[in-house]
Design a protein around this nucleic acid. Structure first.
Lengths: 344, 344
DNA sequence: CAATTTTATGCAATCGATTTAATATGCAAT
DNA sequence: ATTGCATATTAAATCGATTGCATAAAATTG
């Protein structure tokens, strides 16, 4: 184990008999430094294998070149894809991405925020946890002067930008697609209404029904967690009704999958008897033997755009707050679980 | 936008008329400081909402409390799960996790390493890219005195710890399972032999054949990239043979899936005519209508253990290099794609 | 050639916390 | 009362890079 990082601007300055200030300026292309000196410094720095100490620079400048990303879970396809997008967009700008997960727990969320502020990240990207109601801990970020960008799951806070998809539209097109397949009794497996995204998907569903003059039936709505088992039990519950549904729009792919499994168990044919649509376009949906129709959220793009919004924000004067709300269009991937006249 | 982080130990020291050194010592529970002073300092610090500046501390100590993780892609289930494990294990110790992806490209890998060393991470976790042959850039990390821990995909470098699964055994148990199902003509869809993990899975396959007195048939080996399409085309190629296989052991789940799709297209019954086993236990394998038998790599555990190895490494004196090779046992999840007498 | 402006460079302070070596205080022993 | 020693505290240096201000050297002008 040898010594770490050795060469400093002082070492360079000694070697070529100039001051450290000159070395610093030369390396930063300060025009006050003569071409001759600048070239000598740069050449010597290269020879001595000089590496700038980013910590020292960060301390002096107050900018760490790190950004934090807070998500419920890293290893959920949607979130890891957003992270990928952010990472790919920010790395070329010299930023590094620090990952935190909340496990959908607001206490963790608060801790993670504190930790990120402590290490002076230059910005925070976050998708709030399901249990987050109060937003004081988030406002604290703003008070410290650190920009935030919400993605997917946001809270409405003045001065905070966000990148989301149009969940209302997602709910609408999914439902309308089912209607166009001839379905009239469309059940909805909703997600946690504490989160805006799920409320919006539900609203979109309602609006599509209304637009096509289909009566709303409240017993067709089941609010549930996005787990496979819950999709199955939701179907069991629905099939106790006298008027069984002829379609299911699920706000998540896992519940859609569970629903399909239970429908098959009951020998109900898909899509002939019942059409099913999921949400998120999880990788598995297209791999199934009966591929599942789903609403795509373009997560990598979402991450990239969130990163761009952040870069724009910090480019401007620090005193100006840019509040930008980017809403991406969701896209319906129609597959066999709902396509009655599809030749695939 | 208000000012960032304000209160320093000097502010505290002024307020209670002691020196900054005393404040620092008091906050660090240095026994030289009298109880009275310590309590006053701590109380005042709390009142003034003091937050330690980690950058300054990092600069002085040379320890950043950041670790880097280098993976081919963040949003691959296996890698994001390992990252999750590392994150969960290190966060309680005050470390933060910085993510980099290489896109399986060695040039990116070198850049990422440079960047991580530049920001003085305290350690690097990595899974090498497929294109990595030369290891000079990795040795550079060691020369700087920064510990590395390989996970899953490693290179043999003296003094470097690693956490992997026993791929040989994985290949062995997968193949033996197929043999026990009565299969005798077992094809193997191998991964890139540049990576040790795929060579080992292949070796395990060979050994299992030998142990059960089954002749090796080289035309049953197809080296391919882990993509769904490649699984399908591998089957097409295999089914041109006079002696068609009665089982397929794929070194990856995606190729296993592609193989299954192609087998179905050809109306070949699974598992009656052909048994299929994949590798990685990707989430989708258990969701299929025909769930796929696969070898699980316990990625979250792998991440946690890698983190523990790292913590052990840095706990010891910096001059002592601990080289620890942890090998986790893979586990076969038997499902319908291979289980001829399974009642599920 | 002296006066003035430009250009190039150095000095020293700064960012905030840590740490070594030095000093002030208290108390016991002689 | 003086010496000795432990305890508590501080001054100052340090980590490495940046930057405002001062100044020396060179170039320009009258």
């Amino acid at each position: 184990m040898l010594q770490k990082q050795k060469v400093t601007i002082y070492d360079i300055s000694k070697k070529i008999h100039v001051s450290a200030a000159t070395v610093s300026r030369a390396l930063n292309n300060n025009p006050k430094i003569s071409l001759k000196t600048r070239e000598l410094v740069i050449k010597t720095a290269k020879e001595m294998n000089y590496k700038q100490n980013h910590l020292a620079k960060a301390l002096k400048s107050g900018k760490s070149n790190n950004v934090g990303i807070i998500v419920p879970f890293i290893n959920h396809s949607f979130f890891s894809s957003v992270i990928r997008g952010i990472e790919e967009e920010l790395t070329p700008h010299g930023f590094h991405v620090i990952i935190c997960q909340t496990h959908e727990n607001i206490d963790n969320e608060m801790d993670q925020i504190d930790a990120l502020l402590n290490i002076q990240v230059d910005g925070i990207f976050m998708s709030v946890s399901k249990t987050t109601k109060n937003t004081n801990h988030i406002k604290k970020i703003l008070e410290e002067g650190t920009p935030i960008v919400f993605f997917d799951r946001k809270k409405d806070i003045k001065g905070v930008s966000s990148v989301t998809i149009d969940d209302f539209k997602g709910g609408y097109i999914a439902t309308e697609h089912l209607i166009l397949q001839g379905c009239k009794k469309i059940a909805h497996l909703a997600g946690d209404f504490n989160l805006g995204i799920y409320r919006n998907r539900y609203e979109g569903y309602l609006e599509a029904l209304k637009a096509h003059d289909i009566d709303f039936n409240s017993s067709y709505i089941i609010e549930t967690n996005s787990k496979v088992e819950n999709g199955a039990s939701a179907v069991s519950k629905l099939w106790e009704l006298d008027e069984k549904p002829d379609a299911i729009f699920s706000a998540g792919d896992y519940t859609a999958l569970g629903a399909i499994q239970e429908l098959k168990r009951r020998k109900i044919r898909i899509p002939q008897d019942v059409c099913v649509v999921g949400f998120s376009n999880e990788p598995f949906t297209k791999y199934m033997e009966l591929p599942i129709t789903s609403v795509d959220q373009t997560p990598v793009t979402m991450g990239k755009i969130a990163a761009q919004v952040f870069l724009e924000q910090i480019k401007g004067s620090q005193t100006i707050t840019i509040e930008k709300k980017v809403v991406l269009a969701p896209e319906l991937y129609i597959r066999n679980s709902s396509a009655r006249n599809l030749s695939l």
